[in-house]
């Protein structure tokens, strides 16, 4: 029994809708995103409402770019970090699309992509919208301290991305196909005994290493089959730890092939400390920058590994260590498969 899902029909990503906040506008990859809100409120009354409006904007954009109407989409698979997935659920209220809420913390983007591909490959759906979102201030409010509180963050802390990334997934025969989803490996929950919520990268490193190792074992691929292996939001510390664990387990990935969205998205800004995080981090980068590169043919095949920390504000106050998850999805620019 194989533990990697292989999608025979190669479901395709048809279009993407990406929105971000004012801070994301200054990202070196901003030209790959569609919409930016002027401030963290995006003309709404609260951060949570702002997040909802960003999701709506992304969904509308991807529908428009995919040249489909709501009724042609069979399912909407969304997730975020806020209590009971309210931003995603509330955004789904605006659309006449059957909705499934997902939660894998910051690994939601790849969970959604893998599931959408499975739904399409299995013949249950024709077109599926999937995405993930997060909002810096809403997450700070829920998991950490109030936004204006003057506490000092350690250098291991990460900056939650504000934004929403949504893609429309359809059949590979669709003329709008930009890139194809080949395989997916669903991760196991791993715990590396880190309980510091300001050091999520380290907490997530084991889950990431585990899923990457398993992907290579079960799919039969090697590192050479991929142009890049892109992790979601491990940031500096977690990324280095993952690399170490992998090389100890016999998977060595050259530095130039092993990227991390959390390290890339903001360039080298000092205020983000170790790097970026949040479900939107991998969603913005994979569905924005990497999808564009795949479409342009600059990259042939990437393994996208989104990582998520499955903690709640309660669990870390009760001194629990942080269990983490990671999902890997192989995306290629070639319909034919083998490159």
């Amino acid at each position: 029994m194989t533990k990697t899902w292989i999608f025979e029909s190669k479901p395709a990503i048809l279009s993407a809708g990406i929105s971000g906040g004012p801070f994301e506008k200054e990202s070196p990859f901003a030209k790959h995103f569609d919409f930016f809100s002027d401030d963290l409120y995006n003309e709404e009354k609260s951060f949570e409402k702002a997040q909802r409006s960003l999701i709506e904007k992304s969904i509308t954009n991807s529908l428009e770019k995919g040249q489909v109407t709501e009724s042609e989409v069979d399912a909407l698979l969304m997730g975020d970090l806020i209590n009971q997935l309210t931003p995603s659920g509330f955004a789904a209220r605006q659309f006449d699309i059957p909705y499934l809420g997902l939660f894998s913390a910051c690994a939601t983007s790849m969970q959604g992509l893998a599931l959408s591909a499975a739904l399409i490959d299995g013949g249950y759906c024709e077109k599926v919208l999937t995405g993930a979102s997060s909002h810096n201030a809403a997450v700070e409010k829920q998991f950490r301290y109030p936004t204006e509180y003057g506490g000092q963050k350690p250098p291991t802390a990460q900056w939650t991305v504000t934004g929403a990334g949504v893609v429309l997934v359809g059949k590979s025969t669709d003329p709008l196909a930009q890139a194809y989803i080949e395989k997916a490996t669903i991760g196991r929950v791993r715990d590396i005994n880190v309980s510091d919520p300001f050091n999520m990268g380290a907490a997530m490193s084991l889950a990431a290493a585990d899923v990457i190792e398993r992907h290579f074992i079960h799919s039969g691929d090697t590192v050479d089959d991929y142009d890049f292996i892109v992790t979601g939001d491990l940031a500096e510390i977690g990324h280095s730890i993952t690399k170490d664990i992998l090389s100890e387990r016999g998977v060595s990935i050259p530095d130039e092939k092993f990227l991390d969205c959390g390290k890339m998205i903001y360039g080298n800004r000092p205020e983000v400390l170790a790097g970026a995080s949040g479900p939107a981090c991998s969603a913005l980068m994979i569905y924005g920058y990497f999808l564009d590169e795949l479409k342009a043919g600059n990259m042939k095949r990437i393994l996208s590994v989104a990582t998520g920390a499955l903690l709640s504000p309660l669990s870390f106050q009760q001194k629990e260590t942080i269990p983490c998850i990671a999902h890997a999805v192989a995306i290629t620019s070639h319909k034919g498969g083998v490159v």
Binding site: P154, P155, T156, V189, R190, D191, I192, N193, V194, N199, A202, S205, L206, E236, I237, S240, I241, D244, I245, E248, A274, T321, P323
Partner: peptide, 19 residues
């Protein structure tokens, strides 16, 4: 056992201490 007690070395090697 889901918790793996190992990787102390890896985590502490890359850990960034507060200055």
């Amino acid at each position: 056992q889901q918790k793996e007690p190992l990787f102390q070395a890896e985590t502490s090697r890359h850990d960034k201490k507060r200055p």
